[in-house]
Design a protein around this nucleic acid. Structure first.
Lengths: 129, 129
DNA sequence: GCAAACTTGACAATGATTCTCATTTCCGTC
DNA sequence: GACGGAAATGAGAATCATTGTCAAGTTTGC
């Protein structure tokens, strides 16, 4: 694991704090606006840099919306897991499926693929929406 | 199903033909260059429009690369399926996993989600690379 | 053959993300 | 506590895929 060494700064702390406040996946742009509203002055480029770094260290999860925007979320589980995301309110539930992992590994092996990684996200409308 | 009625044109045929020639997922930009190289004069906007329309009618499969680019592929199977994609050569194998579909449905229901849809792609390095 | 409706293409516009680079901040050291 | 080099930041420019615009070209039904 190539854990990047980042220097602790006010800005990075602010980004992490903002992420901790929500259960939804948020885009860099949304986080930036949110921070500015709260009075924290953090540059947009810095928000992007911080999120990218956090994602590289697996401290946040990233996924792409249908529109191609990257959205980030601080997850409770450190381990590999997937998400059930409400397409209306954006709320996300962390789920894991050992069966899926096995299936993916089996299928990959059967076709001679190595170093496999997979993405699996479920989108729907939650009971509150 | 809201099947869009499209008028048959030289350009759309060219895009489909180009897609049929390859087993890899290709971006709109790549297809456009390919068409121009082959001498077929098709505007970039038209390539985008055609691909979007085809995707809406489920005649091609779309997925997003890590870089956020949309890539398209003409698939043999009309039914719902997933892909095992080589990250080196781009070759894709169509696979399906009934177990995964069941699992997704079960998990969604357990959390009260409706109208669920999921994305699942596996990336790896194939035996030829 | 004709008009209405649809499609195309060149280019502008958009919007997220990344790059640039001068300035600021952090950290170990003196 | 001050100092110097390295890393981080911010403002704006630059990039790049994708979408919008609109005049001109095609297709279809009649």
């Amino acid at each position: 694991m190539t854990e990047t060494v980042r220097r602790p700064t006010r800005q990075q702390a602010a980004v992490l704090a903002a992420l901790d406040e929500v259960q939804e996946f948020m885009s860099a742009q949304q986080l930036h606006s949110r921070l500015r509203e709260q009075g924290a002055s953090v540059g947009l480029a810095t928000v992007y840099r911080t999120l990218t770094a956090l994602a590289a260290d697996d401290e946040v999860d990233v996924l792409r919306t249908d529109e191609g925007e990257s959205v980030y979320r601080r997850c409770a589980s450190e381990d590999h897991h997937h998400h059930l995301v409400c397409r209306a309110c954006g709320r996300a539930v962390e789920v894991d499926g050992p069966a899926v992992e096995d299936w993916a590994a089996r299928v990959s092996a059967a076709h001679g693929f190595r170093d496999v990684r997979h993405t699996l996200e479920i989108f729907g409308t939650c009971d509150r929406c």
